[in-house]
């Protein structure tokens, strides 16, 4: 078995050591990959503690998220949910005095390991921010930015990718005739969808969203929510939100953070209908926070 198929076989051996035997057609590979995704955790944190200088921002967070799911992080302001979100693309590293202990795994690889290249990591983990932050460049250049900084120069490829990303972000129809216009001329909702298109243009496998609709009007928010639901088929999505209904609508799982601790993490339905902890109950019914 170490002969001809040796290389390919290794791909489908999952970490639990279950082997896929027989002929390895591409169908089977796909199936195996799918099953593997089902079993494997896409994102995982083990005993993660974070500090901003002296402030203990996250305490012993243990969580795992599967591929192709949407996980909502909820909790009052300052509870650490944004900090938690930002450890997956190591955005917190930009902040002076930030320190992390514990293990953060993406596809079972520790992203804080020494040999991890931070640029490569961020290519795999896209991010959408609270306030739409397009570059003051043309719409086209905004989406192409990620490709260009990652060394893509093939013009046709860039053009196709920009078009595909804008279509995925449900923005293509609105901007296809004005791709060379400045991105800042778009409305807030359009800008945010542009930022989503920009994030997915480099084909990440994880998309982090930090309150993506809090600066938008209800109609734009609804569009983004719809989009999140569609993007789930391709990406693992983590979303921080202050909007309880939004969490209930878009997510498969919900995590409730309070004062840097993970209070409860369960299926969204369970969290919103039958929470196990009193604090969660109080928060989702609006009694505090």
């Amino acid at each position: 078995m170490n002969g001809l198929f040796g290389e390919r076989k290794r791909e489908v051996i999952n970490p639990n050591g279950v082997e896929v035997t027989g002929l390895l057609s591409s169908e089977m590979l796909k199936m195996a990959q799918y099953k593997e995704n089902e079993r494997m955790n896409k994102l995982q944190t083990k005993n993660v503690n974070c500090w901003y200088s002296d402030f203990h921002a996250l305490r012993d967070i243990n969580m795992e998220m599967k591929h192709n799911t949407v996980t909502a992080l909820i909790g009052p302001s300052g509870c650490g949910k944004s900090t938690y979100l930002r450890i997956f693309n190591r955005m917190n590293d930009l902040i002076e005095g930030f320190r992390l202990e514990g293990e953060v795994l993406i596809d079972n690889k520790d992203i804080f390991a020494k040999d991890i290249r931070i640029n490569e990591l961020r290519k795999k983990v896209g991010m959408v921010f609270q306030k739409p932050n397009p570059f003051p460049k043309s719409i086209f250049e905004n989406v192409a930015y990620g490709l260009r900084v990652n060394g893509v120069t093939h013009k046709k490829f860039i053009k196709e990718t920009v078009e595909r990303s804008l279509k995925q972000a449900a923005l293509w129809e609105e901007v296809k005739d004005k791709l060379d216009k400045n991105a800042l001329s778009l409305s807030g909702g359009q800008q945010q969808r542009l930022c989503i298109a920009r994030a997915i243009a480099i084909e990440p496998s994880v998309v982090l969203m930090d309150e993506p609709t809090s600066a938008l009007d209800p109609i734009s928010s609804a569009k983004i929510e719809e989009l999140i639901w569609e993007l789930k088929a391709k990406y693992t999505i983590l979303i921080v939100t202050h909007n309880m209904q939004q969490a209930a609508r878009v997510s498969d799982k919900t995590a409730f953070f309070y004062l840097g601790e993970l209070i409860e993490y369960d299926d969204t339905k369970t969290i919103f209908t039958n929470p196990k902890k009193e604090k969660t109950q109080n928060y989702i019914t609006g009694r505090f926070g």
């Binding site: 930009l94 490569e120 896209g126 921010f129 306030k131 932050n133 397009p134 570059f135 900084v149 920009r198």
Partner: peptide, 15 residues
Amino acid sequence: VPAGLKEASFSLGAS
């Protein structure tokens, strides 16, 4: 220049 621009650029894997 708003910090958001810098974050956006870094988040896309830019050096």
